[in-house]
Design a protein around this nucleic acid. Sequence first.
DNA 1: CTCCAGGAAA
DNA 2: TTTCCTGGAG
Length: 423
Amino acid sequence: MTQPTANSNATSLETIFNQSTSSLNSFAPRLLDWFAENGRHDLPWQQHQTDKPNPYIVWLSEVMLQQTQVTTVLPYFARFMTSFPTVQDLAAAEWDTVAEHWAGLGYYARARNLHKGAKQLVAVIDETGDFPQTLAGWETVSGVGPSTAGAIMAMGLHRYGVICDGNVKRVLTRWAAIDGDITKSATTKDLWALAERLTPIENSGLFAQAMMDMGATLCTRSKPACLLCPLKDDCLAHAEGRETDYPVKAKKQPKPSKFSNALLMEDIDGNILWLQRPDNGIWGGLWSLPLQFVEKIDGKASGQTTAKKPDASDNKKLEVRSSEKVYEAEFTTAEQIIHEWLTENQLVAASTSSTLLDDDPIKHSLTHFHWYLTPQKLTINAKQMTKLNEKLAAAEIAFKWLSEQKAQDSLGLPRAMIKIIER
DNA sequence: CTCCAGGAAA
DNA sequence: TTTCCTGGAG
């Protein structure tokens, strides 16, 4: 039987989605049935079984889950909820306490935005008596973008909200065989339109939960469990056996490599110097050993499979480069001060003697470069330490002399620093 | 080992 | 469009 005219019109309007109206309409019921039967209902931040959802819990967990898997987030979430049971507790906390709680989760701008967002939310609550109730209201909170705001609306307030995160994009590009590059804004726009078309007005929270569960447990990047999928009958990628061809993403360019020395500067009491990094840039707001830039190599090191090991000649290179542009680009203010102080004290030149002890580099890969960090130990006498402390204090640098153990226990240290001190 | 995924901000 | 980090898969 042919479709009535009204439906034909609807179908033609929806051809950008590559799917029939009946498939589009039955998507949500199929997904929700699957979720009720097979989804995860015991995650500590889920609010779908209560009539009084807690937006703080959903906001906190969604920010943590932004670029991080559930199993990684679980212990961090538990510790945050113990230390900061309410948004007021989080807003009132010291930044260093928040940083220490977040340390190891990565993408530390999320932690800074979370702390800032808590203060913003407390201001809204003090003024209106409640959390923001609109999508636009949530999007003004630092660290909350379109998808997180939709998740909070749907799951944290039980209002209408649409999500379109990485899980959703993987499910939808496969189901509708959307072969545009998902890093392009045009494809993102199409995927949002499709997500909105599929999200039911009622139960958008359950739908969001179900989509994330689908993407995380069934429609995985590799080896998707299509036989268990409630969408397999009209999944266009599955029909062609091309599930893993989606989502389409432009190939990434090779990463450059950077080489730095990580200084273990030990005073006479055996304490080590730690610096708080600036808010912007890598490990923003966290604590690190002083790093000294050595050199940068573009792209893949040609034919070189093992890490280059910076030696005394590289330190000479540093001296030459220190007057060039790269100097300011690669050093924080604190590290420039330390570099000058090292030079004054002729400690750099001593690297070939027993004063600086070379060690194997630690490899730490970030989004857009590989970082080879070579730990170097040097002992500082009391007079040198006093002079250095004066210089750092004059520049208003946050610094601490702490044992490795105390630093690990009390400071927010990124993983790379843990790798170094666990040597 | 290498490669990959993932939201928001700037 | 580029910049943020880490854990897990291959």
